[in-house]
Amino acid sequence: NQASVVANQLIPISTALTLVMMRSEVVTPVGIPAEDIPRLVSMTVNRAVPLGTTLMPDMVKGYA
């Protein structure tokens, strides 16, 4: 089972991601792979991401 990136807090729309905002967790459905966390830092989300939500590729500008 692959770990995915999960929001560690509410991430408001257009917020630049930082390490403290994300954690890795094995979830269903599978989202962005946890090993991509370093790549996600400073990318922005294009929607509000509630606490505990799995980050999907279409939620992060420039990721997909």
Rank of each mutant, 00 (worst) to 15 (best):
T53V: 13
V5P: 03
T54Q: 03
A3Q: 11
L19F: 12
V6N: 02
L55G: 02
R39Q: 10
E25N: 09
T54P: 08
T54N: 02
G52I: 03
M43E: 04
L17E: 00
S42V: 03
V5D: 03
A16P: 12
L40E: 00
Q9L: 15
D36S: 09
G52T: 00
V30S: 14
P50Y: 07
L51G: 14
V27L: 05
P33I: 08
M59P: 01
I11P: 00
L51T: 14
R47C: 06
R23H: 05
N1S: 14
T18E: 10
R47Q: 14
I37N: 00
M56D: 04
A34M: 07
P12N: 07
N1K: 15
P38M: 13
S42F: 07
R23P: 02
N46L: 10
I32F: 02
G62A: 08
N46W: 08
A48P: 14
V41T: 05
V49L: 14
M56S: 07
A48W: 12
P33H: 09
E25T: 07
N8G: 09
P57H: 07
S24V: 10
A64C: 08
R23Y: 05
N8P: 02
L40M: 07
V20T: 15
L40P: 00
N1F: 10
V30L: 13
Q2S: 12
R23W: 04
G31M: 02
G62H: 08
Q2I: 14
T53I: 10
M59V: 08
S4W: 03
S4P: 02
V49C: 06
R39N: 12
N8T: 12
A3F: 09
E25P: 00
T53N: 10
L40Q: 01
I13K: 11
L10Y: 15
N46Y: 09
P38Q: 11
L10K: 10
V20S: 09
V26D: 08
P38S: 12
S42H: 12
K61C: 07
V6M: 04
L55I: 12
A16C: 06
M22Y: 02
R23Q: 05
Q9A: 12
N1W: 15
T28H: 13
P29G: 03
T53M: 12
I13N: 13
A7D: 01
I32N: 01
Y63S: 04
A7R: 01
I32W: 02
L19V: 11
Q9E: 08
L10W: 13
I37G: 04
V45F: 03
N8E: 07
A3W: 09
V20M: 13
V41A: 04
S42Y: 10
G62R: 06
V26I: 13
Y63H: 04
Y63W: 13
Q2Y: 15
L17H: 00
L40S: 00
A7P: 02
M59E: 02
N46E: 10
A34F: 05
T53F: 11
G62L: 06
L40F: 02
A7Q: 01
I32C: 04
P38G: 12
L51C: 07
